[in-house]
C-alpha cells in the first residue's frame, strides 16, 4: 500500500502534501481508514473510486474543509491542527476547485477572482485585477470578466473557478470532481485547462472519473474503496495491470 510516506520524516517540506496514518469519523462512521500518502512537488495525482469511498473527504481534509481525528496531515511544511492560524496559512497556499463551482453569484467574474488576493493577500486592487486578467486569459475567458457567474455556461464557470483559485498563486491545487456537474460538451474545455495547468508544473490532486485525463497527465493513480487506499500505481500499470480485485471490478465498470 503506502510506501513513500512511512519512509519520509514527518516534517520533510520537500513534499507538497504528506498524510500519515490519517483516520476520520463522521459520528460513529469510520469514513477514512489509515490513509498514507506523500505527494511530491509538481506531482499530479488522480484519485478515483466508487461513490462513498471517501475520495472527496480525503482531499477536503488537505485544506481542512473536513477535520481528521487521527494521524497527521502536513501541507507545504505546515501541519494541520486545531490552530486557526495554521489552517489559514494552508488555505492560502492550497487552491480548490469544486464539483459545483461555488462561485460567488453576487460578484462579477473579476470580483470573484480579485476578492481573496485583495482581502487575504492584501494586494492592491490594480495589481489584483491585472493578475485576475492574466489568469482569465489563461483559462480563455477574459471577455467575460464583467459578467456575473449566472450568465456563464457550466464549463465557463468551472474555468472561472480555476482562475479564481490560481489568483491566490497556490502551490497546490485540489480538484473535487471538477467535471461531474458539467454537460458533456463542456467537459473537454475544463479538462484542457487542467492539462495546461499540469504542463505548467502545478502540484495537483484530482478526484475524477475522467480516465483519459488520468492517463494523459497523472504521475500516479490512486484507487480508493470503503475509506481506504486500495491501490496506487503509475497510470499505465494501473490501467493495464490492476492488481486488486476491487480495482479490476471498478475499472471494468467504467472503461467499456
Amino acid at each position: 500500500m503506502s510506501q513513500a510516506a512511512e519512509a519520509a520524516p514527518a516534517s520533510n517540506s520537500a513534499l507538497a502534501v504528506e498524510i500519515v496514518g490519517m483516520h476520520k469519523w463522521y459520528g460513529e462512521f469510520h469514513v477514512l481508514k489509515d490513509i498514507n500518502l506523500a505527494v511530491e512537488r509538481r506531482e499530479r495525482i488522480v484519485i478515483c473510486g466508487p461513490s462513498g469511498s471517501g475520495k472527496s473527504t480525503m482531499i477536503r481534509c488537505i485544506n481542512r474543509l473536513e477535520e481528521h481525528q487521527q494521524g497527521r496531515i502536513i501541507v507545504d511544511g505546515t501541519e494541520l491542527t486545531g490552530d486557526l492560524k495554521k489552517i489559514d496559512e494552508v488555505r492560502r497556499e492550497v487552491g480548490m476547485v469544486f464539483q459545483h463551482f461555488n462561485l460567488f453569484p453576487h460578484l462579477t467574474i473579476m470580483e470573484n477572482c480579485t476578492l481573496a488576493p485583495i482581502w487575504v493577500r492584501k494586494m492592491p486592487k490594480k495589481e489584483a485585477e491585472d493578475k485576475a486578467m492574466h489568469f482569465l486569459t489563461k483559462v480563455k475567458i477574459p471577455e467575460q470578466a464583467h459578467k456575473y457567474p449566472g450568465q456563464l455556461s457550466g464549463g465557463q464557470q468551472q474555468r472561472v473557478a480555476i482562475a479564481r483559485a490560481l489568483c491566490m498563486q497556490p502551490k497546490i491545487m485540489l480538484f473535487d470532481e471538477p467535471t461531474s456537474a458539467l454537460d458533456p460538451e463542456m467537459v473537454k474545455e475544463v479538462l484542457d485547462t487542467m492539462v495546461q495547468l499540469a504542463q505548467d508544473g502545478m502540484t495537483m490532486l484530482v478526484v475524477t472519473h475522467e480516465m483519459g485525463f488520468a492517463r494523459q497527465v497523472a504521475n500516479r493513480v490512486i484507487f480508493m474503496d470503503a475509506g481506504q487506499i486500495v491501490e496506487m500505481n503509475e497510470p499505465n500499470e494501473f490501467f493495464s495491470h490492476p492488481q486488486h480485485e476491487r480495482t479490476k471490478v471498478f475499472l471494468s465498470q467504467i472503461l467499456h
Partner: peptide, 27 residues
Amino acid sequence: GQYEGAMAVGLGYWQMMYLIVLPQALK
C-alpha cells in the same frame, strides 16, 4: 458551497460573513 468556496480561497470567518454570506443572506 458558498461557505466552502470562501474558506477555500483563504477568507477568515468575518471576511467570509461580511463579503460572501451576509450580502446574499440579507438580500
